[in-house]
């Protein structure tokens, strides 16, 4: 069955190198110590990491982003999981239409959501407010939670919950003891995904926030004026964090699949 076409193999290798290219470039630059960019760097050091971790502006932006992303991820995961339960297992016209509604924010360009949320927030007097940003980021993270938790939910055997009900458990208890445990890995990995949707989001934050910067806003404002290697250090730090988080999410998802299959 295996295709041993050497041309296709070479093509795959080249494409993977192209896809990794930005990461491969940013790592050595982040460890360089010269003020001016040179490649390969002449001297190595932790200068840009020290710059990043000791700069109160960068740190404030980082903690603000972590705070907002944590809030948005918890809200999206909680609301999204409840929605998945409400949509149920059977596909009907109503559940199809509602799923389309929950998934829509992933398809409509963020700039349109950003403009609408901004005008609404100004009218209600809640612009430049972290809580508004948390809610807006939760809304754009919701589609991924509904899709990821939804597909796990439909794979879980419903007879377990029904059995719990017959044995006298209330609907909440039956759900918590029979359905929630096998669903937990999917919920966690969806939560991590929603976290990074918020953490990497620029345009909604840019419209909504005026006094306080999130990390993407800080990077954006920096990049428009100069190419500063501090951004390389920030990028590498976050590639490492993201890769760790996403690997955990993927491992959780696989374990869940195995458990469900068993």
């Amino acid at each position: 069955m295996q295709d041993r076409n050497p041309l296709l193999t070479l093509f795959y290798v080249l494409v993977v190198i192209f896809l990794f290219f930005p990461i491969l470039i940013v790592v050595p630059i982040s460890f360089s110590s010269g003020r001016f960019l040179s490649f390969p760097p002449e001297e190595f050091g932790l200068r840009w990491y020290i710059n990043y971790f000791s700069d109160p502006v960068w740190m404030a932006a980082t903690f603000r982003s972590l705070r907002v992303a944590l809030g948005a991820s918890i809200l999206a995961t909680f609301v999204g999981t409840l929605s998945v339960i409400g949509l149920g297992r059977k596909r009907s016209k109503t559940s199809g239409a509602l799923t389309a509604l929950f998934v829509a924010p992933a398809i409509v360009p963020n700039i349109i959501v950003a403009l609408g949320v901004f005008i609404l927030a100004v009218r209600m007097g809640v612009s430049d407010n972290e809580l508004t940003l948390v809610c807006a980021h939760a809304a754009i993270g919701l589609p991924f939670v509904v899709l990821m938790v939804g597909s796990a939910y439909r794979q879980i055997d419903p007879t377990l919950e029904r059995a719990a009900r017959i044995m006298g458990a209330g609907p909440l208890r039956a759900f918590l003891t029979a359905t929630l445990p096998p669903l937990t890995p999917a919920i966690l990995s969806a939560g991590i995904f929603a976290f990074f949707v918020s953490f990497d989001e620029l345009i909604i934050s840019l419209f909504l926030m005026s006094s306080a910067e999130t990390l993407p806003m800080r990077i954006w404002n920096d990049l428009r004026f100069e190419i500063n290697p501090t951004i390389a250090a920030v990028s590498v730090f976050f590639v490492v964090v993201t890769t760790l988080a996403m690997t955990i999410a993927e491992l959780l998802r696989r374990r869940a699949e195995k458990n469900n299959a068993a």
Partner: peptide, 8 residues
């Protein structure tokens, strides 16, 4: 590579 921030 999808896990790297678009800004980065």
């Amino acid at each position: 590579p999808m896990w790297m921030s678009i800004l980065a």
